[in-house]
Structures are given as C-alpha cells and as structure tokens.
C-alpha cells in the first residue's frame, strides 16, 4: 500500500532523511518512533507529498507521489492524516469541518456529506458536539473530530503524526481507543507515536528512526524483545521508564 524506497531529503545542505526504505502493507499498522528531530514527521509528510523529497520514490496504492504528473489533491484525498495539533478549522462548526472536503473534493452533496460526517462523529462519541466550534471542545475531543474528519473521506490508509503528544494525560486514552478500534477494523496505518502501549497492542511493525535514517524496522515482538541497535535500546529504556 505504501512503498518507501531509498528516500533522501535535504533542507538546503542539511540532510533530514537518509536513504529511508520501508513498506506498509494493506491492513498493516506500523508505528514510527525515535528521538525528537529524527525526521519522523518529515517522513510521513513525504508520504502524502506535504513535503517534497529530492531522492528516492514513494508509491501509494500504485501511484508515485514524486511524479510531477500525479494529481496530488486526488492522492491526498485518499490518504487520511491526523496532526499533533489537531488542525481543525477554527472558524467552522464541527459539522462543517467534517463536510467541507467531502463536498469540495469528493463532490458529495451537502446532505450526503452531513450524513456521513454525523455517523463518524457518533462513532467517536461526539454526536452532541456537531454544532459547536473547535475552540469549544477539549483537546481530546478535537483530536477525535480530526480523526472523524479524515475518515469521512473514506481513506485507503491513515497517517498519524504524534496524535496524542499535545494532549493532557487524561485525554490520551480516548484518542488511542479510537485508533485501536480503527486498527482492529483493518485500517492501514502509519503512526508516529511514543505510546508504546498502543504499539504493543496493535502494531505489526515498529520503525525506529534516528538522525534521519531508519535504524530499525522490525516486527513488534522482535522490537520490544530485543532491539538490535544500541540506539534503539537506549531510546526504549528511556521512554519505557518514564
């Protein structure tokens, strides 16, 4: 579903990504972790071409994202993305947040879009908030709306960039629960997160990045059992004992 092949990226002379290669198969859940600044966000933003890269190739569902002929809006509409800071549109009601792209991108009728949006809102337990604005919801609620907004596009896969790291601790679980449920339904997911409990529960593979490179790419049990690299061992020791 997502094939990342020898991707390298530079900001000027600074290399952010070094020869990254990995695959995410259909219905697979891959967790990406690593120290701050290691390039995790950059890598997943390359997947839906929010960031360009200079070398290598990324193929999503058979479409090469770096190909200048690729219709990027169309590709992105199929790839859901959830951000650390939610990024709901503050001037729109929750309903409008859920429907705007369905209407403008997929060309659905307003009724159809509202219907779909409200169903998903119900699924993340927030049906009662439909008429409110993002600023009137808690962080955890906003993030659940953001997930529903992405799902409303019927994505073929989902990208998460530290979806819980901007949340107060008591709200982390309500968001993780939604993600776990998605994973169980067979959604293809690439999640940047340091929630190792989530990784243990649903991940198939864990990728560990450091200084722009994929240092470790292992099945979950292997990763938690005995990471091969010393850097991954140190990293795990640090975050697990917190």
């Amino acid at each position: 579903m997502i094939e990342i092949k020898n991707v390298s990226k530079w900001y000027g002379s600074f290399q952010v990504l070094t020869d990254c290669t990995t695959n995410v198969k259909k219905s697979e859940v891959v967790v990406v972790c690593g120290p701050s600044g290691s390039g995790k966000s950059t890598l997943i933003k390359c997947v839906n071409a929010l960031e360009p890269f200079q070398k290598g190739s990324i193929v999503v569902n058979g479409v090469a994202v770096e190909d200048p002929k690729t219709n990027l809006p169309k590709l992105r509409a199929q790839v859901g993305m959830v951000f650390q800071n939610f990024e709901l549109f503050p001037h729109m009601t929750i309903t409008d947040n859920l429907t705007i792209a369905q209407i403008k991108v997929l060309g659905r009728s307003r009724e159809e879009a509202v219907d779909k949006g409200l169903k998903l809102l119900d699924r993340v337990g927030l049906k009662a908030q439909a008429a409110k604005y993002p600023g009137q919801l808690s962080g955890g609620q906003q993030q659940r709306v953001a997930i529903a907004r992405a799902l409303a596009m019927d994505p073929i896969c989902m990208l998460f960039d530290e979806p819980t790291s901007a949340l107060d601790p008591e709200m982390i679980n309500e968001v993780l629960d939604v993600m776990v449920q998605l994973a169980h339904e067979g959604m293809t997911m690439m999640c940047v997160t340091h929630e190792m409990g989530f990784a243990r529960k649903v991940a198939h593979r864990v990728i560990f990045m450091d200084r722009g490179a994929i240092v470790e790419d292992a099945a979950k049990d292997d990763f938690f059992g005995q990471p091969r690299s010393e850097r991954a061992q140190n990293f795990l020791a640090k975050i697990l004992h917190h």
Partner: peptide, 18 residues
C-alpha cells in the same frame, strides 16, 4: 496562521487555492 492549517487542508485533498 500555523502552517498546519494549510497542511490539514491539503491533506484532505483541497487544492492550494481552496
């Protein structure tokens, strides 16, 4: 505005202009 707002729009499939 945060850069994330633009990214969120693009990620949903909106065009730059949208």
């Amino acid at each position: 505005l945060s850069r994330g707002q633009r990214n969120a729009g693009l990620a949903l499939g909106l065009t730059e202009w949208q």
